[in-house]
Design a protein around this nucleic acid. Structure first.
Length: 419
DNA sequence: TCTGGGGTCCTAGGACCC
DNA sequence: TCTGGGGTCCTAGGACCC
């Protein structure tokens, strides 16, 4: 049995944890740079505000309903996420954190201990709420895809209680019949449109299709989804937990950047972020993508990108930074109003199975990186940095409605006023 | 006044080679 | 008589997710 647990409108709910004055009010959270709406509390969803639309387009509606606006406070969300995951972790010996607000639990041999999954789900919900003041939904199913579907039912169906279980043919059919195909994990806009041509509207319609035929017509991915919907596990636990095959760090700028120091500082910062992610999952990269471009919404769109092959696979921040240094004079074009830049690591390898280099040309300093990670983990992620990152901060993002970082900064700790 | 997220994976198509 | 393969690598763009 699998469970999928996720927080309801996580960012918006996270904003409400320490700010009681907005607990009952409609709240939206904007993406980096206050660009788009990325989270909306249930009160806002009722107004029909679409997600991922630019904020400035929806401002009139939001103002009209007196909606609270917040910038992404990623430091706060990441910390609350850690706390939430720590609580969820108690409920199974197999736990995989799938995203900042979602995680899978797997239960092998729990049937003797758990008499009712439904009750168990509510126990999880209550415990997470008591410990973190975050509302979560819990879905159980025999495959990851069905657990996802149950989670959807737990939150969206009429009379939903926050927990739903698929543990019989009856419950499976009932939930899938009431679910649109577009709500299935892995079925997006395009596929929905194509499936409609086949008369496939509900999740159950899709589940009834012949997997082999659908593979021919569409893809292996859809074949797997169909099997999963029928309770046949295709995504093994290891698949779900698979290492990333590529890792990126990109950011658009708060204001257009024309200063080369600012552009370089941003790229080197992305190097550090990517390298850290690689070290965390135990990977090395053979190739690095380095890119920067102007706004695609403006005239004279300018984009350059470089693919750098590394002599020896690496996950060293300094080695990556050196690659930026190598291409920078070709990358930077004076007069271009840069809008966004980033770094990507592609062609990843396992760092445990590396061939030793005969000529020892590697510049990697694993001990230094380990030391850097340890210090940054203990004293905050920006304690120790590559000097180039600090040459300019003119590329930082815009965050006009940032809340306090209640749990990670002493000066911003919540205050309780006593009368 | 002007404003438009971030991450990962897959696929189609072209270049190039034998 | 008329016809013409298959593999690898690279890249851009798109699909999908949150």
């Amino acid at each position: 049995m699998y469970a999928l647990i996720d927080a309801t409108s996580f960012y918006a709910s996270a904003e409400k944890v320490f700010d009681l004055s907005i607990r009952k009010r409609p709240v939206v959270v904007l993406s980096n740079n206050d660009g788009c709406i990325v989270a909306a509390s249930p009160e806002v969803k009722k107004l029909g505000v679409p997600k991922f639309e630019p904020y400035f387009k929806l401002k009139p509606i939001l103002d009209k309903h007196n909606v609270v606006i917040r910038s992404s406070n990623y430091e706060l969300y990441a910390d609350l996420s850690d706390k939430m995951m720590a609580v969820i972790n108690r409920f199974s010996d197999q736990h995989y954190v799938y995203s900042i607000d979602e995680s899978f639990l797997k239960f092998d041999g729990y049937s003797d201990v758990v008499s009712s999954w439904y009750e168990y789900g509510h126990l999880i919900r209550r415990t997470v709420w008591r410990k973190t003041k975050l509302p979560v939904g819990v879905g159980f199913g025999p495959t990851p895809t069905l657990a996802k579907a149950a989670n959807h039912a737990a939150k969206k169906f009429v009379g939903a209680t926050g927990v739903a279980v698929i543990d019989s043919e009856k419950s499976r059919k009932q939930i899938l019949a009431n679910m649109a195909v577009s709500d299935i994990w892995g079925v997006g806009r395009r596929l929905t449109k194509q499936l409609k041509l086949f008369g496939i509207e509900s999740a159950l319609d899709l589940a009834k299709q012949n997997p082999k035929m659908m593979r021919k017509q569409f893809s292996v991915v859809l074949e797997r989804t169909i099997s999963e919907l029928n309770g046949i596990s295709c995504l093994s636990w290891d698949d779900v937990k698979q290492r990333k095959k590529e890792v990126f760090s990109t950011r658009s700028f708060g204001e257009r950047v024309e200063n080369p120091f600012a552009l370089k500082a941003s790229l080197v910062t992305h190097c550090s972020i990517v390298a850290k992610k690689l070290r965390k999952q135990g990977s090395l990269t053979k190739r690095l993508i380095i890119f920067a471009h102007s706004s695609p919404h403006e005239d004279n769109y300018y984009k350059r990108s470089f693919i750098q092959k590394l002599a020896v696979p690496s996950n060293d921040s300094m080695v990556f930074a050196k690659q930026v240094e190598l291409v920078f004079s070709q990358l930077f074009q004076p007069g271009v109003r840069y809008y966004k830049a980033g770094i990507g690591a592609i062609e990843l390898e396992d760092d445990m199975h590396q061939q030793i280099d005969m000529f020892n040309v590697s510049d990697d300093k694993p001990e230094l990186m380990q030391c850097l990670d340890t210090i940054n983990k203990r004293y905050g992620s920006s304690s120790l940095r590559v000097a180039t990152e600090l040459q300019s901060n003119q590329w930082q993002m815009k965050r006009d409605w940032l809340s306090r970082r209640y749990t990670t900064r002493w000066p911003e700790i919540p205050l309780i006023k006593c009368q």
